[in-house]
Design a protein around this nucleic acid. Structure first.
Lengths: 208, 208
DNA sequence: GAAGTAACGTAACGCTGTTACGCTCCCGGG
DNA sequence: CCCGGGAGCGTAACAGCGTTACGTTACTTC
């Protein structure tokens, strides 16, 4: 049935070309014809192997999440769970955003048109963030999470990392101070986590 | 010279149509032909009045920032600067993101292809965020900012708001708990601000 | 009222994602 | 060993996109 060997090679070539184009010129430079040209094939191959341009983009994003997840898993741990979490944010999130800005926008920020396309990333994202969740769980075990759910704290920490990355990619952080601002912000929210349930909000909502 | 009266009306009709389309179907549904059709004119008008599709999109984003800035300015203040800052995040940022998700993605998150197009928003964004900066300055005046710059704290707080909005728009926050998670996260980082310079990072960088 | 210029309708350009059609080559059953 | 069939994919076309050269129109100024 068919010629799967060659197809595998073609699919790899297409993905490699797509990654090269997106990383060097951004997602807007990615066209089916150009990917096919640079991979030495035709547009038809993209549709046979990936179904559509969206399929190719999803495959790219999945690859990006594999990179992210592997980077978190490879990070060493110390006896200090708070420092380890800061390290995960700065070394994994920030590093990935700075070194692969287009892939970051594509996969993490989901700079895509169609919303159901973005939903395709949910599974891959959850896998990649498992390592982050483990580090937050260590904070919880040390009693440094207040009365927050681990899930909530992961969301909040993740949100801060993603927002910092967005702000930095927009050029709002001075290059030589960016890492300090990151460490400072991540440290602040972790410090706040250790206090009991968001005192600043207490004057507004009596917390149900 | 020309017929400026009619032009002004046409420009307004085009902007209104564009806003309607983007808000109801997202940025990917916005095409020059369709905007022109719904405004009762032709594509040529867009190029005469806005220069290009980008010009129209920039005008839309500028309008979004005016809304945001006005919402911050209209917010009342209390004697508690920390609570006021939380309120700004939840009532202005979150509200805008939830009620106008497409405009939020367009203007704040800059879900756009071209990077120099996104830079057009910098001035409008700075204006809109002046009210936020004022509230952070009140925190600083109360001695609740540690040794942080106001500018840095604004960036960090803004990053957290933008990240929370991104996470919520992705559907990761349970609808009935979203506001609590927001208040909790904003409260945590503000609590952390009051502590002296990010203790969690102290074990990693000795702070130059 | 004459003149000139901004507004903008028409029709076309080249590009995009996508697909119907047909050839080609590999893999499994006889 | 070979041969039928289905997967890979080259060709050429489609509709729709942003953009623009050209013409016309109508308003504003002198």
């Amino acid at each position: 049935m068919g010629r799967p060997r060659h197809a595998e090679r073609t699919a790899r070539a297409l993905l490699d070309a797509a990654e090269r184009i997106v990383e060097s010129e951004g997602l807007q430079a990615l066209s089916v014809r150009r990917v096919a040209d640079e991979a030495g094939t035709t547009t038809r191959a993209v549709y046979s192997l990936f179904g559509s341009k969206q399929g190719l983009v999803i495959a790219l994003g999945t690859r990006a999440f594999e990179l992210l997840g592997a980077a978190i898993a490879a990070l060493p741990t110390t006896p200090d769970p708070a420092a380890d979490l800061v390290e995960a944010g700065v070394t994994v999130f920030r590093r990935f955003a700075v070194e692969h800005p287009s892939l970051f926008r594509l996969a993490v920020q989901r700079t895509l048109t169609s919303p159901e396309l973005a939903a395709q990333f949910d599974a891959a994202a959850a896998d990649a963030l498992a390592g982050l969740e483990a580090r937050v769980a260590r904070l919880a075990a040390a009693g440094l999470l207040g009365d927050r759910t681990i899930r909530d704290a992961v969301c909040q920490f993740h949100a801060l990392c993603e927002g910092l990355a967005a702000v930095e990619l927009r050029g709002l952080l001075h290059a030589n101070q960016a890492e300090r601002v990151w460490r400072d912000a991540l440290g602040a929210i972790i410090t706040g986590f250790a206090a009991v349930s968001a005192p600043a909000a207490a004057t507004q909502v009596p917390q149900g």
